[in-house]
Computed example of a mutant assay.
Amino acid sequence: MPPEIIVGNNQSRTEIPEAWLTLLEKGGALAAAEILARHVAAEDAPLHDHECIEVALVDNETSARVHEQFMGIEGETDVITFHHGEIVIGVEVAFRQAAENGEPPLRELFRYIVHGLLHLAGHEDEEATDRERMEAAQEPLVARLWPELG
């Protein structure tokens, strides 16, 4: 059974309607189910072990603090995934990227949830070949599930 997805809006700079949060939770659960069925990259992937995944939507300052504290990298980022089942998403980064790429902001937030879930399924993206493999799993999922959410 796929994990439940809980999305918490932990920032106030960018308005996110409650209905969006519900859609993100629904979409995350759909993505988790498909990832478990088709895209698990490692048998010992932590996604198998979680009944619930928490997604924290945060501002740039929080994103930068978490990024530096846990990854040793300065500056805000889009997504940080923790194996204990938390995905931290920089909302301001997501909205900026959405505008630059002509994407709806919610779709970009959903992409980041899928990205985090893929990390929990054992995918990595530090090396170019790993990044390509991860995108090859991520983008078709976003494209297929988005119409149900958008």
Score class of each variant (00 low, 15 high):
E126V: 11
G90M: 01
E18W: 01
Q11P: 12
I87S: 01
H50S: 08
E74N: 01
N9Y: 12
I6Q: 13
A136C: 08
N101T: 01
D130G: 14
E92K: 07
L120V: 06
T77I: 05
P104R: 10
A56M: 05
R144F: 10
T81I: 00
I87Y: 03
L36A: 14
E127Q: 10
M71S: 08
E15N: 11
I89M: 05
D130Y: 00
E74T: 04
E148M: 09
T22A: 10
A45E: 01
G72L: 05
D44Y: 09
H115N: 08
E139K: 15
L118W: 03
P3Y: 08
H50Q: 06
I35F: 12
I89E: 01
V79D: 04
F110T: 09
R111D: 03
D59S: 11
A64E: 03
A45H: 09
E25M: 13
E124T: 14
F95M: 01
R144S: 14
A45D: 07
A94I: 02
R65Y: 02
I35V: 15
G102C: 00
I80S: 00
E68D: 04
E100R: 14
L30N: 13
S12V: 09
A37Q: 13
E92T: 10
L109G: 01
W146F: 05
G72E: 01
V142H: 13
P104K: 04
H67M: 09
M71R: 03
G75V: 02
L47A: 08
G27M: 10
E132N: 12
N10A: 13
L47W: 06
F95D: 07
V88I: 08
E148K: 13
R38D: 15
V55C: 06
I73S: 04
R133A: 15
R38K: 15
H83I: 11
E126G: 04
V93Y: 11
F110I: 06
E61S: 07
P140Q: 11
H48G: 00
G116V: 05
S12K: 07
P3S: 10
Q138P: 02
L36Q: 13
E103R: 09
H119K: 07
I16T: 12
A56D: 10
I6K: 14
D59H: 08
L106I: 02
E92C: 06
P46T: 15
G85V: 08
R111A: 06
E51W: 09
D125M: 03
I89T: 02
R133T: 14
G27A: 11
K26R: 15
D59Q: 03
K26G: 04
E54P: 02
F95I: 00
A37V: 06
E124V: 10
R96C: 01
S63I: 07
L118T: 04
R144H: 14
L57V: 09
E54L: 10
E92V: 07
E76I: 00
A29T: 12
M71A: 03
L120R: 05
I89V: 14
E54F: 05
V58L: 02
S63E: 06
V66H: 07
R107C: 00
H119C: 02
E139M: 14
E132K: 14
E34Q: 15
D130H: 08
A41K: 15
G90V: 01
H119G: 05
Q11K: 07
